[in-house]
């Protein structure tokens, strides 16, 4: 079996969950080789090896943080040259997709983005995509070059699979054209202490029906009782009630949790595009005709300010 490069998404060596999902999917098509750029490879090694990485290629250059995207593409391109993989898998974050895009151009390879599943096929890896706001499911392949595939979070359950995970230094030369976009300053997002929206098993979202920033506490209380992430519709974000980083939908995050709870959200196509692949969908809306009810496994027609606090209390009571 050939080797599969897996681009590691991490914060100073703390490996993010989507990378573990990628390692799990990579094992279906070959032997995972992790590419860890930036600091913390020693910390990450155990986790990566524990999930099947036979090797961990690492490089830590200041350019990765000082310039946008391109130096990471240089590193990945050089990793491809060193390993000759059968595929390159990258997490489907905004940055991940851009890295993959440039890598594909450099390699002269086809690219598939936002895969929700991956299996091996006679003619290379077959990716499943969920398209047109999840109304269709397609199966696609890359037919030229080394397949470059970005995979959405929550596409697989990470499986432990101990492997050697030998750390090797990757020699990286940053190209002259790769330092064109300077990152002048960086302000990290404040942590809310809640799970990452795209990675959470449960997402609790509020929309225009929440009717005010201060009322989002109702949504947050439910989220906290369930250990969930908080999401918002664009209407709620545009009104300034909740940060854009929590927006779910076409121009926000795409989520695929086990459980999605929508309160005061009508279910517009652009919102559905970001949540329709959730396993179980629940909605609370006072309008029985709201399109969101077409999607739900369970819906409550009612005032969210009555229903949600009662639900929160009941969850707390049941959890003891």
């Amino acid at each position: 079996m050939g080797e599969v490069l897996v681009y590691v998404d991490h914060v100073d060596g703390a490996v993010r969950k989507p990378t573990l999902e990628l390692l799990t999917l990579a094992r279906r098509i070959g032997e995972p080789v992790a590419v860890h750029l930036g600091p913390g490879a020693d910390t990450a090694q155990a986790t990566l090896a524990g999930h099947g990485a036979v090797k961990v290629l690492t490089a830590d250059l200041p350019e990765f943080a000082e310039y946008l995207v391109a130096p990471k593409v240089d590193a990945l391109e050089q990793a491809v040259a060193a390993v000759s993989p059968v595929a390159v898998l990258v997490p489907s974050s905004a940055e991940g997709k851009e890295i993959a895009a440039r890598l594909a151009v450099r390699l002269g390879s086809g690219i598939i983005t936002d895969a929700v599943d991956l299996e091996s096929g006679d003619e290379g890896p077959v990716a499943t995509q969920s398209v047109f706001a999840a109304a269709f499911t397609t199966k696609s392949r890359v037919t030229k070059g080394v397949p470059v595939i970005t995979v959405k979070p929550n596409s697989a359950a990470p499986e432990a699979a101990p492997a050697a995970g030998t750390v090797e230094q990757l020699a990286v030369t940053v190209g002259e054209k790769s330092t064109g976009t300077k990152v002048v300053s960086r302000t990290p997002r404040e942590s809310t202490g809640r799970p990452e929206l795209t990675e959470a098993a449960i997402v609790v979202s509020g929309g225009r029906g929440v009717n005010g920033a201060e009322n989002f506490k109702v949504i947050e209380d439910l989220a906290d009782s369930l250990g969930a992430a908080v999401g918002a519709s664009r209407a709620a974000v545009d009104a300034g009630w909740y940060p854009h980083s929590n927006q779910v939908g076409q121009t926000g995050k795409s989520v695929s949790p086990q459980l999605y709870i929508a309160s005061g959200i009508s279910g517009a196509i652009q919102h559905r595009a970001g949540m329709q692949t959730s396993k179980t969908i629940v909605a609370i809306n006072k309008d029985p005709e709201a399109p969101i009810f077409e999607l739900v496994d369970y819906g409550v027609v009612g005032d969210l300010f009555e229903v949600v606090p009662q639900l929160t209390d009941e969850v707390k009571a049941r959890k003891g």
Binding site: T137, D313, E314
Partner: peptide, 29 residues
């Protein structure tokens, strides 16, 4: 550089249970 082998309409989600809140909606949920 890529090929779509198949495209299938996602099966409609099976109709869920919808209840109207009459004071117990949160508990039912």
């Amino acid at each position: 550089w890529t090929k779509v082998d198949s495209a299938a309409e996602r099966p409609a989600r099976t109709a869920g249970t919808i209840v109207t809140d009459e004071g117990e909606g949160g508990k039912q949920l």
